[in-house]
Amino acid sequence: MRAAAPAVVALGGGHGLSASLSALRLMTDRITAVVTVADDGGSSGRLRDELGVLPPGDLRMALAALCDESDWGRTWRDVLQHRFSSTGDLDQHAVGNLLIVALWELLGDTVEGLDWVGRLLGARGRVLPMSSVPLLIEADVVDRTGATRRVVGQSAVAATTGTVAQVRLEPADPPACPEAVAAIEAADWVILGPGSWYTSVLPHLLVPGLKDALHRTAARTIVTLNLASGESGETAGMRSEQYLDVLRSHAPELRIDAVVADPTAVEDVSALSARTADLGARLLLRQVSRGDGTARHDPLRLAGAYSDVLDGFLGDVGTRENPPE
Results as ranks from 00 to 15, higher is better:
101 V>K: 01
158 A>F: 07
167 V>I: 15
171 P>N: 09
149 R>M: 04
113 G>N: 06
142 V>N: 00
103 L>K: 07
124 R>Q: 15
144 R>E: 14
102 A>F: 04
124 R>Y: 09
121 L>H: 03
89 D>S: 14
142 V>D: 03
156 A>D: 14
117 V>C: 10
128 L>A: 06
138 E>Y: 02
159 A>P: 00
154 Q>Y: 09
147 A>K: 03
131 S>E: 07
156 A>H: 14
142 V>Q: 15
152 V>I: 15
105 E>K: 15
95 V>G: 01
124 R>V: 08
172 A>C: 02
122 G>T: 06
171 P>Q: 08
101 V>L: 03
160 T>S: 15
167 V>L: 15
115 D>L: 10
160 T>K: 02
171 P>L: 08
174 P>Y: 02
157 V>R: 09
150 R>E: 12
92 Q>K: 15
174 P>T: 05
91 D>R: 01
161 T>E: 15
147 A>R: 12
175 P>I: 08
163 T>I: 07
101 V>P: 01
118 G>A: 14
94 A>L: 05
163 T>D: 13
136 L>I: 14
103 L>I: 05
97 N>Q: 10
91 D>C: 00
148 T>I: 14
147 A>Y: 00
109 D>F: 07
102 A>G: 12
145 T>D: 13
112 E>G: 08
169 L>I: 11
146 G>R: 03
132 S>L: 14
108 G>W: 10
175 P>G: 10
99 L>F: 11
155 S>L: 09
97 N>Y: 08
95 V>W: 01
164 V>E: 04
167 V>D: 11
128 L>Q: 06
114 L>A: 05
128 L>W: 02
119 R>D: 14
160 T>H: 07
90 L>W: 07
171 P>D: 07
156 A>L: 13
123 A>T: 03
153 G>W: 11
96 G>N: 06
95 V>P: 01
161 T>W: 04
129 P>H: 04
95 V>Y: 02
99 L>K: 01
125 G>H: 04
170 E>W: 13
100 I>L: 14
117 V>N: 06
113 G>R: 07
143 D>V: 05
174 P>D: 06
159 A>V: 02
131 S>G: 08
162 G>Y: 01
117 V>D: 05
150 R>W: 01
93 H>W: 03
136 L>E: 15
114 L>T: 04
157 V>M: 10
145 T>G: 01
161 T>M: 12
104 W>N: 00
164 V>G: 04
121 L>M: 08
96 G>C: 07
163 T>Q: 11
